[in-house]
Design a protein around this nucleic acid. Structure first.
Length: 528
DNA sequence: GCGATCAGCT
DNA sequence: CACAGCTGATCGC
């Protein structure tokens, strides 16, 4: 599921090996860096495959690239904040303040008012948030005192493409990203190579001459803009299109790599694999010239079919950079297929009782398409999305989806809205804006984490208010705890580096103990 | 005015 | 709790 077709792409005209000479002549890894990894990371045989980091062709890996920020202690951690007195900490490169306590952030931002405890809300008398969402749909005029007009926005009234993207996806930069260190953390760097993964918000990363982007979500592409000039960006053709269309990155820097093809970049054999996350999302497999193999999962949902990928089946993986979003046994959720049939069933039942129901699916910029696609197929109706979202969805070249998209909201009772719109007041206004076309709204909020307490789909209880009913459904695009365990036990990597939830020392310890538990029985190895 | 970044919130 | 943002605000240019 979730795989989208890669049709012809208009971006891939530039040959990939133009930047294959990108390893700068730099000193070797400093001894003080050791293997560059904290000792808490699980290792197979201690040291095996580790000493070789930084050797071989990739040995010119800059020590400055890998030397700073190589341990967890540089990461933000609430527990650590309590521990070390949380003074202002200077970066190695001098001057910069490390993201840390709230006071540090305020200092860094130079926001004296906040530092002094003056709240923003007390200063500005802003409009309530709802007004803007209503304005977005043309339901309410700016500054107009009336109850809103009754018509959906006309195409001609919409802002130009760029404004529309920015409107859909956040403020001025396509969505704010949570505070992170200014220095690229070590787990975004691939040792023995001049590569980083999803590391765009650190400016020019020293020693990095190739920047990989696993998928088009703001917390991964953060920092990319039309001013990007720090090096080539490698990603799938679909992600490449979005980077150009939505962020206006200069195409000279964008290097689309077809899935399932080996590409030689800087002497490293690189293959992108379908990640089962959002459209365009990829796992990245690196095979260094010294034989070391690394797998970076980006964000992914582990699945059985992945175990048949030729690069993963019966292959040694030395280091696994793992999406550990739900690496806790409390996170159990059903398969995507089960959730899709559940959503269809709920909708059919609802429509039987209230035939004039508007069905709404909440979604971010990309991801969760299969939820409304499944509804579209089952109900035999089209999908309405606004111009901003249509532009993105059409760029997928996913014909099964494209054919079902409608620009006219009155064409169909199945609409996609930003997930932030799934609130009673907003949906109620939305319902009213269609006059008497609909009597009720049935909305689905697909997410992975609302499901933590429930164990069965049948136990899900919707919340209703007036004519609006909202279901939170456990449609996850990350691996459940069980899926993660099965994937790790299948792959049996020598070493695992978590890439999510790493800001807290106790969470890191917990994850490492799970990894050890999963890998303790060597006789179960598939990949020995 | 525009773009980047931050706090607070969902 | 955490996902993947959203929104308003400030700051530099």
């Amino acid at each position: 599921m979730g795989a989208s077709e890669n049709g012809d792409d208009d971006l891939d005209s530039i040959s990939d090996d133009r930047h294959s000479d990108c390893v700068p002549g730099s000193p070797r890894l400093d001894r003080e860096d050791e293997d560059g990894f904290p000792s808490e990371v699980v290792g197979g045989g201690r040291g095996e495959g580790i000493e070789s980091f930084g050797e071989g062709d990739g040995g010119s890996f800059a020590s400055s690239f890998y030397g700073s920020g190589t341990d967890w202690s540089r990461l933000r951690s609430s527990s650590e904040e309590e521990g070390d007195g949380s003074g202002v900490i200077l970066d190695d490169d001098g001057g910069g303040l490390r993201s840390g306590t709230a006071s540090e952030k305020k200092l860094k931002q130079g926001n004296l008012l906040q530092l002094w405890g003056v709240k923003m809300k007390e200063i500005g008398a802003g409009e309530p948030r709802q007004a803007n969402l209503l304005q977005m749909w043309g339901l309410k005029r700016k500054g107009a005192g009336d109850g809103g007009c009754e018509v959906a926005p006309l195409e001609s009234e919409l802002p130009p493409a760029k404004k529309r993207w920015r409107r859909l996806n956040g403020g001025s930069n396509g969505g704010a990203v949570v505070a992170q260190p200014r220095v690229c953390p070590f787990y975004k760097k691939i040792p023995g190579t001049p590569f980083t993964v999803d590391a765009f918000r650190y400016g020019c990363v020293e020693g990095c001459s190739a920047y990989f982007l696993t998928h088009f979500h703001a917390d991964h592409y953060g920092g990319l803009s039309k001013k990007w000039s720090h090096g080539p960006i490698y990603c799938t053709p679909l992600t490449a299109r979005l980077v150009r269309m939505c962020l206006y990155v200069d195409p000279l820097f964008i290097r689309p790599l077809e899935l399932n093809e080996e590409h030689i970049i800087g002497g490293v054999r690189v293959t992108l694999l379908e990640a089962n996350h959002c459209p365009g999302a990829a796992l990245i497999h690196f095979r260094l010239s010294n034989g070391q193999c690394y797998l970076h999962t980006g964000d992914f949902r582990a699945s059985k079919p992945m175990q048949a990928y030729p690069l993963l089946a019966n292959q040694r993986v030395d280091v696994l950079y793992l999406d550990t979003t739900y690496c806790n046994p409390r996170y159990k959720f059903p398969s995507k297929e089960d959730v899709l049939s559940y959503v269809v069933r709920v909708s059919n039942d609802f429509l039987k009782k209230w035939p004039k129901t508007l069905i709404v699916v909440g979604a971010y910029s990309i991801g969760k398409e299969c939820v409304y696609l499944a509804l579209s197929k089952a109900l035999g109706v089209k999908i309405h999305a606004d111009a901003s979202r249509r532009r993105i969805l059409q760029s997928f070249n996913w014909s099964e989806l494209s054919e079902r998209i409608s620009s006219n909201p009155k064409d169909t009772n199945l609409h996609v809205l930003p997930i932030s719109s799934l609130r009673f007041e907003i949906l109620d206004s939305y319902l009213k804006s269609y006059g008497n076309q609909y009597t009720d709204v049935l909305a689905f909020r697909p997410t992975g984490w609302t499901y933590s307490e429930r164990t069965q789909l049948s136990l899900i209880k919707p919340i209703s208010k007036g004519k609006v009913t909202i279901y939170g459904v456990p449609y996850s695009e990350h691996s459940s705890f069980t899926e993660l365990r099965e994937f790790v036990q299948f792959l049996r990597p020598s070493k695992i580096i978590p890439t999510v939830n790493v800001g807290n020392a106790s969470t890191r310890d917990k994850m490492q103990s799970y990894f050890q538990e999963w890998l303790k029985d060597k006789s179960m190895s598939h990949n020995s």
